[in-house]
Design a protein around this nucleic acid. Structure first.
Ligand code: ZN
Length: 428
DNA sequence: AGCCTTTGACCAGCG
DNA sequence: TCGCTGGTCAAAGGC
């Protein structure tokens, strides 16, 4: 069914060119402390024809876009955690602005091989902790990014608004919508997010505006962080960016192009068939995340806390969970969303977004994502926890090669972990 | 007791 | 037709 059904894929990966990665890798080292840089680029493919070949619509998030509105990206935690192994949550850490800037400067653009849909937005860290929640409406894709600088936590929200209307209009890919969201981390440690969504909201959702299904919300729900199950640290600094949904791992395999094993997750919701593929390095860093399908249900529990940002909240990655409206048929998961982290910034418009322009956001993070393998999800909930938990002070990223070009980057986290604990397993 | 993770094997699609 | 890769299922184990 895939063919017929729209799928949304979110891929988190490093996106950048290999060369870049290498360059980055080679060229840049992470400071001993760390902060790796994070690069996020999100490219979203619009429903347009992502797969169709037509021109994929991409969401562009421009740096200019309001911070609030622009990106939402993964949050960074002071420690190094990025993503949960089990569920797939991502956490990012940020370095200092400078670092980011550097990154940005250095960074260039990354293009993902992926293709088309890559846009990157430059993320700019704010000095203050700002947290935004992202939401995505039908046409909007939001990423939440929280950055924490030293002590301060920064949250950035990026929202990419897709022209909903355009969405459909633009591309007639209705039946099959494919969204791809790729979150990537640069070899350098910069996570890149590319979100390409080519989904078709046509059927299921109305791109226009009426999203019948709750799924849309899911997209980026605000739930930034899950507390209950979540891995937040006691300090509240770290949080995982989950989609807010519960996932169950049903398989793991090593893909040829990837150095790291790819884990397959399914939404635990009975009615939901959404699947997620996560590639994470041994260290637990996530190199690629791919979402397939849309959630038909609202998130399990929105424990969100209000203020997240304050002290620590951290991360809320809004994932892009695939929530597509199921309405029509997206349920099967036909929509893939790719989110790419890391990319290049090509142009971004402050306006809103561009449909076809890639934006790139870069930020520095210490650890991109770290996932820890064991965590169970929480009983029942399934969310992830933080893998490492503790704070890692420094993380290194090294990426190896790109073997086929697909080399992904690997980041090493050194962790220091001091975390008290709190995180790891929360299930009772 | 329930749920999730892990691992191996099987199956399907593609070149 | 064979081989390869990717994806999924199922069983066992652990928390
Ligand atoms: Zn679901």
């Amino acid at each position: 069914m895939e063919g017929t059904v729209p799928e949304s894929r979110a891929v988190i990966g490093l996106s950048g060119s290999i060369a870049e990665r290498r360059a980055a890798k080679c060229g840049f080292n992470i400071a001993p402390i760390s902060i790796p840089r994070l690069r996020t680029s999100s490219s979203v493919a619009n429903p347009c024809g992502w797969g169709g070949g037509s021109s994929p619509c991409r969401l562009t998030i421009s740096p200019g876009i309001s911070p609030t509105a622009l990106l939402d990206s993964p949050t960074m935690v002071p420690n190094s955690q990025a993503l949960s192994p089990t569920t797939g949550t991502l956490m990012y850490q940020l370095l200092s602005e400078e670092e980011e800037r550097k990154v940005m400067n250095s960074e260039n653009h990354n293009h993902r091989e992926n293709d088309e849909g890559s846009w990157s937005f430059p993320i700019k860290p704010n000095p203050f902790p700002v947290s935004h929640s992202c939401f995505s409406d039908q046409g909007t894709a939001g990423f939440d990014v929280d950055f924490i600088y030293g002590s301060s936590l920064m949250n950035f929200d990026m929202q990419a608004s897709f022209p909903t209307g355009d969405y459909d209009k633009t591309s007639p890919v209705n039946s099959s919508s494919s969204e791809e969201a790729v979150y990537g981390v640069d070899a350098e440690m910069k996570p890149t997010i590319h979100a390409a969504s080519s989904e078709a909201n046509s059927d299921g959702k109305d791109a226009n505006g009426t999203p019948p299904a709750p799924t849309e919300k899911d997209f980026v729900q605000e739930d930034d962080v899950r507390e209950a199950k979540g891995p937040y640290d006691s300090l509240g600094l770290v949080k995982t960016a989950e989609d807010g949904y519960n996932w169950r791992k049903y398989g793991q395999k090593q893909v040829k192009g990837s150095e790291y094993p790819r884990s397959y997750y399914k939404c635990t919701n009975t009615n939901c068939q959404v699947k997620k593929k996560v590639e994470r390095s041994h260290d637990g860093q996530i190199t690629e995340i791919i979402y397939k399908g849309a959630h038909n249900h609202p998130k399990p529990q929105p424990p969100r806390r209000g203020g997240a940002s304050a002290g620590g909240a951290a991360v809320s990655l809004a994932e892009n969970a695939p929530d597509i409206g199921e309405g029509a048929g997206a349920e099967d998961g036909s929509v893939w969303r790719n989110v790419h982290l890391g990319g290049s910034n090509k142009d971004a418009r402050p306006d809103g977004f561009e449909a076809n322009s890639p934006t790139s956001m870069r930020t520095s993070i210490s650890d991109l994502l770290s996932a820890v393998p064991q965590g169970r999800g929480v009983g029942g909930g399934g969310s992830f926890e933080s893998a490492h938990g503790p704070e890692h002070s420094s993380s290194l990223a090294s990426h190896e090669d790109d073997e086929d070009g697909s080399g992904r980057l690997s980041v090493l986290e050194e962790a220091d972990d001091d975390e008290p604990d709190s995180k790891r397993r929360s299930y009772s």
